[in-house]
Simulated scan of single mutants.
Amino acid sequence: MPARMLSPEAAVDNRRVQRQRAGDSAAGRVQRIFDISRYGCQIESNDLADGASGQFVEIDFGSVVARAIIRWSDRTRLGVEFARPLGSREVDALLAEPAPIRLRRL
Rank of each mutant, 00 (worst) to 15 (best):
M1Y: 03
M5G: 07
L6R: 13
L6Q: 10
P8D: 09
E9H: 10
E9T: 06
E9Y: 05
A10W: 00
A10I: 12
A11D: 14
A11H: 07
A11E: 13
A11I: 01
N14G: 10
R15Y: 08
R15E: 12
R15G: 09
R15D: 10
R16A: 14
Q18E: 15
Q18N: 08
R19V: 10
Q20V: 13
R21T: 06
R21S: 08
A22S: 03
A22F: 05
G23S: 13
G23Q: 14
D24L: 15
S25A: 15
A27G: 08
A27M: 12
G28K: 02
G28N: 02
V30E: 06
Q31M: 01
R32S: 15
I33P: 05
F34C: 00
D35I: 04
I36G: 00
S37E: 07
S37R: 06
R38F: 00
Y39G: 04
Y39L: 11
G40Q: 11
C41Q: 02
I43D: 07
S45E: 03
S45T: 12
S45R: 02
N46D: 14
N46F: 12
N46H: 13
D47F: 01
D47H: 06
L48P: 02
L48N: 03
A49T: 05
D50E: 10
G51S: 14
G51T: 09
A52N: 07
S53E: 15
G54F: 06
Q55P: 03
Q55N: 12
F56E: 05
F56Y: 14
F56P: 06
V57Q: 03
V57L: 15
V57K: 00
V57N: 05
V57R: 04
E58S: 12
I59D: 04
I59C: 03
D60T: 12
F61Y: 08
S63D: 12
S63W: 04
S63N: 11
V64Q: 07
V64M: 04
A66Y: 04
A66R: 14
A66D: 00
R67T: 02
R67H: 12
A68C: 11
A68Q: 03
A68H: 03
A68Y: 00
I70T: 00
I70F: 03
I70P: 04
R71V: 15
R71N: 07
R71T: 14
R71S: 08
R71L: 14
W72R: 15
S73M: 07
R75C: 13
R75D: 10
T76H: 13
R77D: 08
L78G: 03
L78Y: 07
L78V: 05
G79H: 09
V80R: 00
A83K: 02
R84V: 09
R84T: 09
P85H: 01
L86I: 09
L86M: 11
L86C: 06
G87I: 11
S88Y: 10
R89K: 08
R89N: 11
E90V: 03
E90M: 07
D92A: 15
D92W: 05
L94P: 00
L95W: 05
L95C: 04
L95K: 06
E97Y: 00
P98S: 07
P98C: 03
P100T: 14
P100N: 13
I101P: 01
I101V: 10
R102Y: 10
R102E: 13
L103V: 04
L103K: 00
R104F: 01
R105L: 04
